[in-house]
Amino acid sequence: MTEDGPEAPGTTALYVYAVCRADGGPVLDGVSGVARDEPLRTLPLGSLTAIVQTVRAAEFTDEAWQERLTDEPELERYARAHHEVVSVVAAQAPTVPLPLATLYTAEDRARLVLGNESARFHTALERIAHHAEWGVKVYAAGSPGEDDGGTARRPGTPGTPEGRDRPAPGAGRAYLERRRTLRARRERRREDSLRVAETVDTQVCRLAKASRRLRPHGPGTADGHRPQVLNATYLVADHRSAELEVVVKDLRERTGAEIELSGPWVPYSFVGEV
């Protein structure tokens, strides 16, 4: 049944969310996915099953996505909808997620391309079975306003550039001195934080099957305004998740650093390189 429904061929596309084993045909009730015209359904692929949805092709072109990327609430809706489908399926059986916006022009195309990749899917499924992904973030130490101390802001220190046509003699040196002190202090704090980050990574790696470093989030994202010094993610066996929480708690106490643990995630970060 390709291109069923009232739509003419070419006006619809098939959106693929994830792939799991055929024996674990997931229940998809109550989940709507990224489109509302058609329900989510499964697409049999022999020993595997794909979770798919027929969508309007016009809403899923590259242009439409580029537009969406500049519209944060819109992008968030799609990202969360995709994530929800993946998570619901993964709650029922080991699941390999596909990235946001993997689309085929027709059902037989999807069946052909995904079918050709079945070895990769099986390898990934084996790897992640009974495992979950856990995110660990470490934030740089140092409280806001700390830089005001010392020589940073002596009253009457000349050299504030604004409102002066000519800085007073020595202003440059004082200015450089101040910058140097600040930089040294910042550098020290950063090094301390990086050392803590390495310790955390080493400890968590010991009980993980695999690990990946993600790009640290810049200040000002939803994570708040603290510089991140580690944004890593780990593939951890289900029976070791309690142990992981203990390790993180212990690291928090031992290092005094702010460490954030998030999970369990569907192992998004551990299915790609197989």
């Binding site: 992008l75 990235p99 995904l114 990934a124 790009r215 998004y268 790609g272």
Partner: peptide, 28 residues
Amino acid sequence: PGPPNTNLADILERVLDKGIVIAGDIKI
């Protein structure tokens, strides 16, 4: 399975960057 209060950046870096990459028909 997924943290209850997942922030957007955490989700985006997983759904955009990760997952098993299979070539789709529609290039995005």
